[in-house]
């Protein structure tokens, strides 16, 4: 089960905690992986660790031209893209009354608009091949909201709506489009939280622990697999029971 040999995956944000874990997990199932992010040294370290079937594809997704160029580079390096993991994301938290336009825009641009552009660019090849998997990393916050994260929550809820629309457009071509909504996962994005907040969070998580990147990666492997062919337009919540939606 979940064999990905012969599949080619493009993972954005592969220089980060969750993206790195997803790239490792897809690779372990046999996929060739395109590793994208802005920090080339981190991408190169991961490629070196994976040894074979790993390609470093740097891109700054806040640049509107970057998504199309990245897909072209991925198709050139891998020979095509069967699996797209839209994982690159960032936060610019602030209460709405204090949030600057540029903080709103930057988060929407990278988290949502780039994911759309990447999906659009990959769909052509997937439609031709009559096979494809698009998995976008949303967030529990996209479903529940969170004070200080109007921009981030909007971008993550946007991924869910986008995925449902795309899923309906391309389901007849054996292409599935889904989201994973992680709860609280220990990565660079979350490690700056004060210990006290962390403790409080653990208390509201029925599983009694914070998540790790591998918890999210396992869900990505499943959704990318042949076995998940009949699952599309869905959001898989990986949150230790923190929110049951």
């Amino acid at each position: 089960m979940f064999d990905l040999q012969g599949k080619r995956a493009l993972v954005t944000g592969a220089s980060g905690g969750i993206g790195g874990a997803i790239a490792r997990a897809l690779h372990a199932q046999g996929a060739a992986v395109g590793l994208s992010g802005t920090r080339v040294d981190a991408l190169e370290a991961l490629a070196a660790e994976l040894k074979e079937r790993a390609y470093v594809l740097p891109a700054d997704l806040s640049d509107p031209a970057a998504a199309d160029a990245l897909v072209r580079a991925a198709e050139a390096a891998l020979g095509g893209v069967d699996i797209l993991i839209n994982n690159a994301g960032l936060t610019r938290d602030n209460l709405a009354v204090r949030m600057k336009d540029e903080d709103w825009q930057k988060v929407l641009d990278v988290n949502l608009t780039a994911a759309f552009r990447l999906s659009r660019a990959c769909l052509r090849g997937m439609m031709k091949k009559r096979w494809g998997r698009i998995v976008s990393i949303a967030s529990v916050v996209g479903a529940t909201g969170n004070p200080g994260q109007a921009n981030y929550a909007a971008s993550k809820a946007g991924l869910v709506g986008m995925s449902k629309a795309l899923a309906q457009e391309v389901a007849s071509r054996n292409i599935t489009v889904n989201c994973i909504a992680p709860g609280f996962i220990v990565t660079a994005m979350t490690e700056h939280l004060p210990e006290e907040r962390r403790q409080k969070l653990v208390e509201i998580i029925p599983a009694g622990r914070l998540g790790v990147a591998a918890d999210v990666a396992a869900a990505a492997v499943y959704l990318a697999s042949e076995e998940a062919a009949y699952v599309t337009g869905q959001t898989l919540h990986v949150n230790g029971g923190m929110a049951m939606i």
Binding site: R124, M127, K128, E169, V170, S172, R173
Partner: peptide
Amino acid sequence: ADSLDTVELVM
């Protein structure tokens, strides 16, 4: 054809 077919034909 469906609408996606027409797009694919154009491609």
